[in-house]
Design a binder for these strands. Structure first.
Lengths: 213, 213, 213, 213
DNA sequence: AATGAATGAGCCTTCATTCAT
DNA sequence: TATGAATGAAGGCTCATTCAT
C-alpha cells in the first residue's frame, strides 16, 4: 500500500521512452549537475510528461541509480576478461595477456581506464562528485566499481611470481586509487591535455613499484 | 543598490558568534552536505537568528568560502617552510631537510598530507565533492591549494640533481595527484584503517619512481 | 537557465483559474495597494496554490502588467472610433460625430472618460499611483494610454477650422491632462459626488478655451 | 505604557541631527521611492545610528509625515497672504493684488504653483504617488494642501463681482485640480520642457472660463 | 543620549511529487 | 497508460524595529 507501482517496460516503445529519459538526464546533469536539474526539466527534455517520468522511476534518485549502473556497464564490461556478456560480447582487451610484457599490460590497463573516462566524461565527473557527497550516493557507485577492482587483482595475480612487493592487498589498492585519480584528474580537470605523458609516467611509476627491489 | 553591508566583527562577542556559525555550518555540512544544509538550519544550530547570519555573510556560498579558507589555513600553514607567520609561528616540519634522506623527506611529506586530512575530515570530503561539482566551487578550493603545490615543487627541486626522471612537470603532477588521492581515499572512504601500510607503500612507490632508472 | 515555463491556459478550467487570480489581485491591490499585497495572499484569496500562481505569472509585476492591459482594453476600446474589433464589436460613441455640435462632442468625450473611471475605480487609482512611483510602472501604463491620446487628437482635428487656438499641441496636452485630472480626482478622491457639475463646468471651460477669441 | 518616548529636540545639536535624517530621507526617497528606502539606509546616509533614528521618529511613516509637512511649509507659505510666519516671514506675492489685472493674477498664481513644484521635485512626485496609494498617506498630504485651497478661494473672491460663473465652488475645484495636474505633469513627467507654453495656455483657458459668457 | 548588534516575521520563489482526467 | 495542472513544504533573503550596553 502506498508503494507506487513502478513499471518495468517490456514493450519496445516503452524501452525507447525510458532511454529518452535517461539520455535527457545525462545531458542535463552533465551540464548543470544533479542538484540543479529538476525532474520536470528532464521530462520536458525527453519529450515525456512528468507523470510518465514518475511511472518509470520512483524518484530522481532512482533514475540516478540506473544511470550509474548503465555507465559502469559500459565502462567496465569491456575490461572484464572471462565474463560472457549476454549478447555477442565484444572481447575484452585482457582476454589474452600471454603475448604481452608486464609493462605492456600495465600500459593497456591504464589506457583502458582512460577510455572508460572518455565515455560521458562530464556525467562521470558528476557521479564522482555525488559519491563524495554522501555515503548513499557513494554506495551506489561502489556496487559497480567493485567489479573493476576484482578484475585488476586477477590481472595482477597472473604475474604473481615476478612481483617484488610483499603487501599485495595494499599495493592493489594503491595502484587502483592512483590510476583512478590520475586519469580522473587528467580527464575531468585538465581536459585530457597531457594524457600521453601521464600514461607514460604512470606506467613507469607502477612498473617500477611492482618489480624493483 | 543592494550591496548589503557585511559586518566584520571586531568585538569578542561577535567573533565568538561568527565562530559559532562556522562551527554549526561545518557540523551540518559534514553530516548532510552543502546543498542539503539550509542557512536557516545553520543559524538555528548556531543559536543565532537568521538575520544575524545574513549580517555576517552575504549568502551561503560566502560562508562556504570562508570555511574553505579556514580549513586551508589550518591544513597548509604548518607545511609552509620559510614563511613567517604573524605570531610566534610553530616551525614547519620542512624547515630543515638537510638532515633527512630522500626517503625520509617523501615519507614526511605524505605524513603531513595525512595530518591535514585528519582535521575536519568529513568537511574536507564535502569540499572535495563540491570542487568536482562545479568549476565555481573548484576555483574556491584551487586558490588555496596552489600554495601546497608550490611548496612541494620547492621540496622536489632540492633533490634535483639526483632525480632520474626527465619530465619533471608531469612527475610532480602525478605524485601530487597520487598522494592526494591515496590519502583522501584512505581517510575519507576507509576511515584511515590501513593508514600505516599506505604511507609505507606510497613512499616506496614514489621514491622508486623518482630515483630508479 | 531559469526561463521558467509560463503556462498559457487554453482550457476553460484554466482560464477561469487565471481569472480568479486576476480578480483576487484587483481586489487586494485596490484595498491595500500593490506593494502591500503579497503573491501568497493573492493566491490564497483566489483559492489557488502559490505554485499555480507562479505557473501563470513570472512574478507579481507580470500579473500587474496583465491587469493594466485588461483595464485599458475595457476602458479604451469603447472609445475607439474606426477600429474593427475582432468579434461583433459594439460601436463607439464617436462613430458618428456629424450630428453633434461641438459642445456635445466635448461633453460626450468627458462623459466617456468618466465611464472609463467607473470600472475598477480603486484599482485604476492604484495604477495611477504606481505610474507616479517609478518610470518602469509608468511605461507599462503609457503603452496603453497612448491609444487614448491619439483618439482625442483625431476628434479635435475634425473641428480644426473652427478652432481659435494657435498652439494645437499644447492645447491638446492641456485638455487631456485637465480632463484626466478632473475626472480622476472626482472619481478617486471625491467618490464621484459632484460628477454632474464637474462635467458641466469642465465642458464649459474647454469649449470656451477652444472657440473663444 | 509601551508608547515609545519620542524625543523633541531642543538642543542645536539635536535639531541638526534631525535635519540630517530628513535630508537623507528626501535624497533617498527621491531616488528610490518610499518603499524601497529602508530606515537603516536613511540612518546610515544621515551618519546617524538606527537607534537614534528611532529616538526621533516613531517609525518610517512618522518621518514621512514630517517631510510632507516641511515640503508644504516651504511650498505654500510663500503664497499665503495674511498669515504671520513665525520668524521674520517673507512677504507673499499675493500680498498686494490691487495693482494687478485679473489675467496677471491668474498668471502669477500658476507661476507660483510651478515654483512650488521646482522645490524637491522628485520628492514631491513621490508624495503624489503615495497620496494616490492609500488614504492614510493621502490624508497626510491633504491636511497641508487644504491651506492652499483656502488661499486660492480668497484670491478668487477678490474678483467676485466680475466673475461670470455661477457655481463658484465647482469652478474653484476645477481650476485648482487643473492647475495642479498640468503643473504636476509638466514638471514630473515632462521635465518642465514646455513650461512657458503651458503657463500661457493655462492662463488663457482659466481667464476665459472665469470671465466669458 | 547614542549605538548598532540582534531579531524574526514574512516576502518571493522553486521543485519533487501527486492525482484527476 | 499517459498527461500535466496543481500542490505546498521549504529555501533564500530583507528590513522595520528593539534593547542591552
Amino acid at each position: 500500500m502506498g508503494d507506487k507501482e513502478i513499471r518495468v517496460p517490456k514493450q519496445k516503445r516503452s524501452i525507447e521512452k525510458k532511454q529518452r529519459i535517461k539520455n535527457a538526464a545525462i545531458k542535463l546533469m552533465s551540464e548543470k549537475g544533479y542538484h540543479s536539474t529538476s525532474s520536470n526539466e528532464i521530462a520536458k527534455e525527453a519529450g515525456v510528461s512528468i507523470g510518465t517520468f514518475y511511472s518509470y522511476y520512483k524518484d530522481k534518485k532512482d533514475l540516478y541509480k540506473e544511470l550509474v549502473a548503465d555507465i559502469y556497464n559500459v565502462v567496465i564490461s569491456p575490461m572484464n576478461m572471462n565474463e560472457e556478456s549476454e549478447e555477442g560480447s565484444a572481447s575484452s582487451p585482457f582476454d589474452n595477456l600471454d603475448n604481452l610484457s608486464i609493462e605492456e599490460t600495465v600500459y593497456l590497463y591504464i589506457e583502458t581506464v582512460f577510455k572508460g573516462h572518455e565515455y560521458e566524461t562530464a556525467f562521470q565527473r558528476e557521479i564522482a562528485s555525488l559519491s563524495e557527497q554522501s555515503d548513499e550516493f557513494r554506495e551506489i557507485e561502489m556496487v559497480h566499481k567493485k567489479g573493476l577492482t576484482q578484475m585488476f587483482i586477477s590481472v595482477l595475480s597472473a604475474y604473481k611470481d615476478e612481483l617484488k612487493i610483499k603487501d599485495l592487498k595494499t599495493a592493489s589498492y594503491l595502484i587502483l586509487t592512483t590510476v583512478e585519480a590520475a586519469v580522473h584528474d587528467t580527464m575531468f580537470h585538465n581536459g585530457g591535455k597531457n594524457k600521453k605523458a601521464v600514461i607514460r609516467e604512470l606506467t613507469a611509476m607502477i612498473v617500477n613499484y611492482l618489480f624493483t627491489e
